[in-house]
Simulated assay, not measured.
Amino acid sequence: MQYLTSFERRARQEGIEQGVRLGKVELVRQLLSERLGSLDAEMLSRLDQLSSSQLDALARQLFQFQSLDDLEDCLDRLLE
């Protein structure tokens, strides 16, 4: 069994968490594109700013969105 320092364990955990967050970003992007059509660069940039828990909150709401304005309002609330 390989010994890991606390720094290595922390780095590994942070890498896993970052990978999970990036996966959520990609899934939310795909679902939003299916729901609302193509997203512009500004909207994609705003999605990249969301934390993992904020992405979860957006995902729970995205099927209620009728327009890009709904997405923009949600992002405004999440990024306050």
Results as ranks from 00 to 15, higher is better:
residue 25 V to C: 09
residue 7 F to Q: 09
residue 48 D to A: 12
residue 14 E to C: 05
residue 65 F to Y: 01
residue 41 A to H: 00
residue 10 R to Y: 01
residue 74 C to S: 14
residue 31 L to Y: 01
residue 29 R to K: 14
residue 40 D to Y: 08
residue 38 S to E: 09
residue 16 I to E: 15
residue 57 A to E: 13
residue 4 L to H: 05
residue 33 S to N: 06
residue 27 L to Y: 10
residue 20 V to E: 15
residue 16 I to G: 12
residue 45 S to G: 15
residue 77 R to K: 13
residue 14 E to I: 05
residue 71 L to T: 00
residue 20 V to S: 14
residue 30 Q to T: 06
residue 18 Q to E: 12
residue 55 L to I: 14
residue 15 G to N: 14
residue 8 E to I: 12
residue 60 R to D: 10
residue 40 D to E: 10
residue 73 D to R: 14
residue 52 S to A: 15
residue 78 L to W: 01
residue 11 A to Q: 07
residue 47 L to M: 06
residue 75 L to Q: 01
residue 50 L to C: 08
residue 12 R to V: 10
residue 31 L to E: 06
residue 45 S to Q: 11
residue 15 G to S: 10
residue 29 R to H: 01
residue 78 L to M: 05
residue 52 S to I: 10
residue 20 V to T: 13
residue 1 M to E: 03
residue 70 D to E: 03
residue 56 D to G: 13
residue 9 R to Y: 00
residue 65 F to P: 04
residue 4 L to T: 07
residue 42 E to I: 13
residue 9 R to W: 00
residue 40 D to M: 13
residue 8 E to D: 11
residue 8 E to S: 11
residue 9 R to N: 07
residue 66 Q to F: 02
residue 32 L to V: 05
residue 17 E to K: 08
residue 8 E to M: 11
residue 71 L to C: 07
residue 41 A to L: 06
residue 38 S to F: 01
residue 44 L to S: 01
residue 26 E to M: 14
residue 77 R to P: 04
residue 2 Q to Y: 04
residue 68 L to V: 13
residue 62 L to R: 02
residue 27 L to N: 13
residue 76 D to N: 12
residue 23 G to E: 09
residue 38 S to T: 05
residue 61 Q to T: 05
residue 23 G to W: 03
residue 29 R to I: 09
residue 57 A to Q: 14
residue 21 R to K: 11
residue 49 Q to D: 12
residue 49 Q to G: 08
residue 22 L to V: 09
residue 61 Q to I: 04
residue 18 Q to F: 11
residue 29 R to C: 12
residue 49 Q to K: 14
residue 62 L to G: 01
residue 57 A to G: 06
residue 10 R to C: 00
residue 31 L to T: 00
residue 48 D to I: 03
residue 74 C to G: 03
residue 39 L to M: 11
residue 21 R to A: 15
residue 39 L to K: 07
residue 49 Q to F: 01
residue 22 L to W: 01
residue 63 F to L: 14
residue 63 F to G: 08
residue 44 L to P: 00
residue 73 D to C: 09
residue 71 L to I: 04
